[in-house]
Amino acid sequence: MNTAETHNSSWGVWTWPNLVTVIRLAGIPLFCYLLAFTDHYWTAAAVLAVGGGTDWVDGQLARRLNQESRLGRLLDPMVDRLYILTALLTLTFLDLIPWVFTIAVLLREAALAVCVPILRWHGYGPLPVHFLGKTATFVVFMSFPVLVIAGLDNGAEVWAAPLGWALALWGLGLYWLAAFVYVRQTFMLVKAVRLKRTNGQATPTVV
């Protein structure tokens, strides 16, 4: 095994990409505080936009600096999920988005959550992030800061509300389409494992 493979398979806690991810994580409570307890709505929207919009930075750093790690592969999507769910529930609680939209997103997350133990049971780790999933997450996420401005700044509502909801509904459609891709991949992997077991072949090891 070469050095790069050894490094990529290690936890690699102290890396620049992980530092960026942790800084992004720190933006979540800051956003909640600014939105719920202050009148700095534009600042809250900016924190949310930067925190979610810089998702690609840690991944690019990991590849360019050859600092990919197991911790990074787990932490990065976890932070993305936390941003989505925190923003979603906060905006719903403040009546900036309706519950029907929130439920549609949460049902999608629940559908994907079911896939994880199924994959684990059949010897697979989490599925790699699909480009469609990344795009859907980005579009949905970018709708949130716009909807914050639309709901709390009366002067910006005329342009922010149509833009925010265009992004939100487009992103939601992509979000569910990506979920279909992930569920289909799960089904195909499980089918392949069962076929191998039927033929007496070795099954994959969880990574």
Rank of each mutant, 00 (worst) to 15 (best):
I149P: 03
V148T: 14
V140C: 15
G123L: 12
G151R: 10
P126Y: 07
H122A: 05
V129T: 12
L119Q: 00
G125A: 05
V129W: 03
V129P: 03
G133F: 09
F131K: 09
H130M: 05
V139N: 04
F144E: 10
Y124D: 03
A136V: 14
L132N: 03
W121S: 13
H130C: 00
M142C: 12
L119F: 01
S143Q: 12
V129H: 09
H122C: 02
F138M: 14
G133D: 05
R120T: 02
I118G: 00
F131W: 15
T135M: 14
S143Y: 14
V146P: 13
F144P: 10
H122S: 03
L147A: 04
T135G: 09
P145I: 08
F141V: 06
F131D: 04
L127F: 04
V139F: 10
S143K: 09
G151S: 13
T137Y: 01
V146E: 10
G133L: 10
P128Q: 03
H130P: 00
F138D: 01
A136Q: 05
L147Q: 07
G125T: 09
P145M: 06
H130S: 13
W121T: 09
F141H: 12
V148Y: 11
P145C: 07
L132F: 09
H122R: 13
T135Y: 05
S143N: 11
V140M: 14
F141C: 03
V148Q: 13
L127E: 01
V148K: 14
V140L: 15
A136I: 14
P128A: 12
W121K: 15
P145A: 08
V140G: 02
F144I: 03
T137G: 12
